[in-house]
């Protein structure tokens, strides 16, 4: 079923677009350093709870598991969008992109709900070093996902207007890289923050 063809994807045939994809990898590198720093801060501060709640008292794992499954699924639908683009199906590429951003939105809403209920219970990030590190790390990831949703909306409109040109293919490829990167970061947040917190 799997055949290796001799042609490269269009976005890689063009030298300039290849360089732009390379540039996006460099951006992801700096982003990885950002998240690495925030993970280090979290791991160092997670036991400094002061008078606030411990991770075990704070986390409700049910919604977090839902968020994780939503993000994993959106990563999958994002790869299907790129797959559709590769076999030149414009409606498929747009439809899977819309599914992806819908899932991304519901992820962000669930996270906002989690943060809001923490704050309403008095657990703001002023309360302890653990809460500061927690809100900064998870909030930075949530901010990235929100930006990704906005990006996907604009990308879907652009593909709808212009079709699959060299430029829109490269943009879709870069978006897919960004989205999968955020998924990987979330896997580590799920493991290091939430699962380790309730273990």
């Amino acid at each position: 079923m799997s055949t290796t063809t001799s042609t490269l994807p269009p976005e890689f045939q063009d030298n300039m677009e290849s360089i732009r994809i390379m540039g996006f990898w460099i951006f992801l590198t700096t982003d990885l350093v950002l998240f690495g720093s925030l993970f280090a801060v979290y791991v160092v501060f997670r036991s400094l709870v002061g008078l606030g709640p411990t991770p075990h008292q704070l986390f409700v794992i049910g919604p977090v598991l839902t968020e994780t499954l939503i993000l994993l699924t959106s990563s999958f639908t994002c790869s299907l969008s790129l797959y559709s683009a590769r076999i030149n199906r414009v409606p498929g590429a747009i439809a899977w992109l819309i599914v992806t951003l819908g899932l991304g939105m519901s992820f962000v809403l669930l996270e906002i709900h989690e943060f809001a209920s923490d704050v309403l219970n008095g657990h703001t990030w002023h309360q302890s070093a653990f809460l500061s590190a927690f809100f900064t790390l998870v909030g930075t990831h949530g901010g990235h996902v929100s930006v990704g949703v906005g990006w996907a909306i604009m990308l879907a409109i652009q593909i709808g207007l212009k079709g699959l040109t060299l430029t829109t293919r490269r943009k879709l490829y870069a978006f897919a890289l960004y989205w999968h990167f955020l998924d990987i970061v979330w896997i580590f947040i799920f493991t290091v923050v939430y699962l380790s917190g309730i273990a």
Binding site: T4, T7, L8, P9, F76, L80, Y83, R86
Partner: peptide, 10 residues
């Protein structure tokens, strides 16, 4: 580049 009939890898 792998071109497949079906997104089995994904």
């Amino acid at each position: 580049m792998h071109a497949t009939q079906f997104p089995s890898l994904q």
